[in-house]
Amino acid sequence: MDSKSNAAIRTDPVAAEPSHQASSGPSTARGSIPVLPMAQQAGNQSRLPARVWMKTTGTRYLVRTLALVAAVVLWQLASTNGFHFYINFDNIPAPSVVGAALVSELTGQEFYLHILHSLQRVAIAYVLAVVFGVVLGVAMGRSRWAEDIILPYIELLRPIPAVAWIPLAILMLPTEQSSIIFITFLGALFPVVLNTVHGVEQTNSVLIRAARSLGASKTAILWHVVLPGAMPSIVAGLAIGMGVAWFSLLAGEIISGQYGIGYYTWNSYTLIQYPQIIIGMLTIGGLGTLCTLLVRYSCNPLLKWQAKGGRS
């Protein structure tokens, strides 16, 4: 709270109104990096004049775009000139070649089937991970018993990379599809659990006391105090979990027989189709980023209270 120093002039409600409004103005120009472009914009749109937006946020997006363009240009130059100084670009297809291959992929149907299968697997695995992760995390954060029982498993299993699970997943689960979903699920689960635990354990004890003195039951405290308080941390876990889900999907789809963007990438490697490898990689990166943004954006209403000047 930065408001203490202003308390004196703001105590009178009549005087308070304008200064209250004014105080919410400059906060939009704060220096934090807008990780959530859509979300932040949505919150501040009404107060931010277009000219100021161009000067601050607009410029930053321009720089970001240029940074990506620069990398593509360098890549193009390195590939066409056969750059070879420790790092070898001789066999790397240039962006122009990859682009041409991408166009031909986009005109066919196969490519979309790959994406569709992957999206489906990620969706199922992610929903399972979120449900299990939040429930386990809240249980661990609230109960010492639950934490002492579950935490050793998490600490032990977390460092195991997704690829290492492949043999067990095949042996334990009935279908190829369920094995892939299991591997993806595990990847997303750990960040969700750990962030939920972290958020729940940080619950402000004064707020719990306040709720108790207002007559709240244990369930009500969980619902009205603990969960909302943990929400920023949970949302961070959900976003990280989505990234890791895509990351693990690629490993899981090694065993896929036919479809999936991970399978597509591995298969292109086997068939020595270099442009397709890069298309597969970039597609995973792009889909992962999009899905993470989607998670953050859809969780945004849960966190609107964090925005300064948050009137709804």
């Binding site: 408001s3 308390a7 004196a8 703001r10 409600p13 209250h20 948050g310 009137r311």
Partner: peptide, 19 residues
């Protein structure tokens, strides 16, 4: 308490005295 006008505000937008 004279804060009817702030019914829809979130607490972090209020001064210490108002809170």
């Amino acid at each position: 308490v004279g804060l009817a006008a702030f019914a829809n505000a979130y607490p972090n937008t209020l001064s210490g005295g108002m809170q």
